[in-house]
Deep mutational scan, measured.
Amino acid sequence: QIFVKTLTGKTITLEVEPSDTIENVKAKIQDKEGIPPDQQRLIFAGKQLEDGRTLSDYNIQKESTLHLVL
């Protein structure tokens, strides 16, 4: 699982696999929060994550925290 922290300070927990794409993660966030993926920007280690890449591409491991910017 990974954590996604929103600007409001809320933390969302997501069940993911390293092979999941960023697009996939955004879809999971939409399921939980109702935020359309095209409004979501995910930041990890100061980098904006691209939809077509996977979590493992960015070396995002379990218990990692991503930041969600709208």
Rank of each mutant, 00 (worst) to 15 (best):
24 N>I: 14
38 D>A: 15
56 S>N: 09
4 V>F: 03
49 L>G: 00
2 I>T: 01
20 D>P: 01
67 H>G: 05
49 L>P: 01
29 I>P: 00
54 T>F: 06
13 T>Q: 08
21 T>K: 09
37 P>G: 08
67 H>K: 07
11 T>I: 15
67 H>N: 08
2 I>Y: 05
48 Q>V: 15
35 I>M: 05
69 V>T: 10
38 D>M: 10
21 T>C: 05
64 S>I: 05
7 L>S: 15
57 D>I: 03
28 K>I: 06
49 L>V: 04
10 K>P: 06
29 I>S: 01
1 Q>A: 09
54 T>K: 10
4 V>R: 00
55 L>A: 02
19 S>W: 11
44 F>R: 03
20 D>G: 03
45 A>T: 05
4 V>L: 05
63 E>Q: 10
25 V>D: 00
13 T>C: 11
16 V>G: 03
68 L>Y: 02
4 V>D: 01
67 H>I: 13
54 T>E: 04
18 P>W: 13
10 K>C: 14
27 A>C: 12
30 Q>M: 13
17 E>Y: 11
25 V>M: 05
6 T>V: 10
54 T>H: 06
26 K>T: 02
42 L>M: 03
63 E>N: 13
32 K>N: 05
14 L>F: 04
11 T>K: 07
40 Q>L: 06
50 E>Y: 06
12 I>V: 06
8 T>D: 14
12 I>P: 00
15 E>N: 12
23 E>Y: 14
19 S>L: 09
8 T>L: 10
26 K>G: 00
49 L>D: 00
24 N>A: 14
51 D>K: 04
28 K>S: 04
3 F>Y: 14
41 R>V: 15
27 A>R: 14
16 V>R: 02
3 F>S: 05
24 N>T: 13
39 Q>L: 10
68 L>P: 00
65 T>W: 08
46 G>I: 02
50 E>C: 11
47 K>D: 07
67 H>R: 07
14 L>Y: 02
8 T>E: 14
61 Q>N: 10
33 E>I: 14
30 Q>F: 14
41 R>D: 07
36 P>Q: 07
36 P>K: 07
22 I>P: 02
68 L>Q: 02
25 V>R: 00
10 K>T: 10
50 E>T: 06
60 I>W: 03
53 R>F: 12
14 L>D: 01
27 A>I: 14
66 L>F: 04
10 K>D: 08
25 V>F: 03
28 K>D: 02
26 K>M: 05
64 S>T: 07
48 Q>S: 11
1 Q>H: 15
63 E>I: 03
48 Q>D: 14
40 Q>S: 04
62 K>Y: 15
69 V>G: 06
22 I>T: 04
66 L>N: 01
45 A>V: 06
1 Q>S: 11
67 H>D: 10
40 Q>T: 05
38 D>R: 11
8 T>G: 12
18 P>A: 10
6 T>A: 06
48 Q>N: 10
66 L>W: 02
17 E>T: 10
50 E>N: 06
39 Q>W: 10
6 T>W: 12
45 A>K: 14
11 T>L: 14
35 I>A: 04
24 N>R: 13
21 T>F: 08
23 E>K: 12
30 Q>P: 02
58 Y>F: 04
35 I>N: 03
38 D>P: 08
53 R>E: 04
40 Q>F: 15
59 N>Q: 09
15 E>T: 12
63 E>P: 03
24 N>Y: 13
7 L>D: 12
29 I>G: 00
40 Q>K: 02
38 D>E: 12
34 G>D: 05
32 K>W: 06
40 Q>I: 13
47 K>E: 12
14 L>E: 00
32 K>Y: 08
24 N>K: 11
12 I>Y: 06
53 R>A: 08
25 V>E: 00
68 L>C: 03
23 E>G: 13
9 G>N: 06
35 I>C: 06
15 E>D: 13
58 Y>D: 02
36 P>N: 07
42 L>H: 00
29 I>N: 00
34 G>C: 07
44 F>H: 08
12 I>K: 01
68 L>S: 01
30 Q>A: 14
57 D>A: 05
6 T>M: 15
25 V>A: 02
22 I>S: 02
8 T>C: 15
43 I>F: 15
13 T>S: 09
28 K>G: 03
65 T>A: 04
1 Q>R: 13
53 R>C: 12
68 L>W: 02
14 L>H: 00
15 E>P: 06
37 P>A: 15
51 D>H: 06
34 G>V: 02
65 T>Q: 06
42 L>K: 00
10 K>Y: 12
17 E>G: 08
2 I>W: 02
70 L>R: 08
14 L>Q: 01
67 H>V: 13
33 E>L: 14
57 D>K: 02
26 K>P: 00
18 P>Q: 09
57 D>R: 02
45 A>E: 14
41 R>P: 01
22 I>H: 01
64 S>C: 09
41 R>G: 06
13 T>H: 07
3 F>I: 07
65 T>P: 03
47 K>P: 02
13 T>I: 13
40 Q>V: 09
19 S>M: 10
15 E>Q: 12
54 T>P: 05
9 G>Y: 03
25 V>K: 00
66 L>S: 01
47 K>S: 09
25 V>Y: 01
7 L>G: 15
23 E>R: 15
62 K>R: 09
52 G>N: 11
33 E>G: 05
31 D>G: 09
59 N>A: 08
46 G>A: 04
37 P>K: 14
39 Q>I: 10
46 G>D: 08
35 I>V: 08
68 L>I: 05
34 G>P: 03
44 F>A: 03
58 Y>L: 06
52 G>D: 12
46 G>Y: 05
15 E>L: 12
56 S>E: 13
26 K>H: 02
43 I>D: 05
42 L>W: 01
15 E>S: 12
22 I>A: 02
45 A>N: 15
3 F>D: 03
9 G>L: 03
54 T>N: 05
26 K>S: 01
6 T>F: 15
28 K>C: 05
31 D>P: 02
36 P>R: 08
54 T>D: 03
35 I>T: 07
37 P>V: 14
47 K>F: 10
55 L>E: 00
40 Q>R: 02
60 I>R: 00
14 L>N: 00
56 S>D: 08
20 D>W: 09
61 Q>R: 08
20 D>E: 10
20 D>R: 02
34 G>F: 04
40 Q>A: 05
34 G>Q: 06
62 K>L: 15
26 K>L: 04
39 Q>V: 09
64 S>F: 08
30 Q>C: 14
45 A>M: 15
24 N>S: 14
30 Q>L: 10
32 K>G: 04
50 E>L: 09
70 L>M: 12
53 R>S: 07
8 T>R: 09
7 L>V: 15
18 P>N: 07
22 I>M: 04
35 I>F: 11
54 T>G: 03
70 L>H: 12
61 Q>D: 09
59 N>P: 03
19 S>Q: 09
42 L>T: 00
13 T>A: 09
20 D>L: 05
19 S>K: 08
30 Q>D: 05
7 L>M: 15
51 D>G: 07
35 I>K: 02
34 G>S: 06
12 I>L: 11
70 L>Y: 10
2 I>H: 01
43 I>W: 15
1 Q>Y: 14
44 F>P: 00
48 Q>K: 08
36 P>D: 07
6 T>D: 07
60 I>K: 01
43 I>Q: 07
36 P>M: 06
64 S>G: 07
13 T>K: 08
50 E>I: 07
64 S>R: 04
41 R>S: 10
44 F>E: 02
5 K>M: 12
19 S>H: 12
15 E>M: 15
8 T>Y: 12
64 S>Y: 08
51 D>C: 06
31 D>K: 12
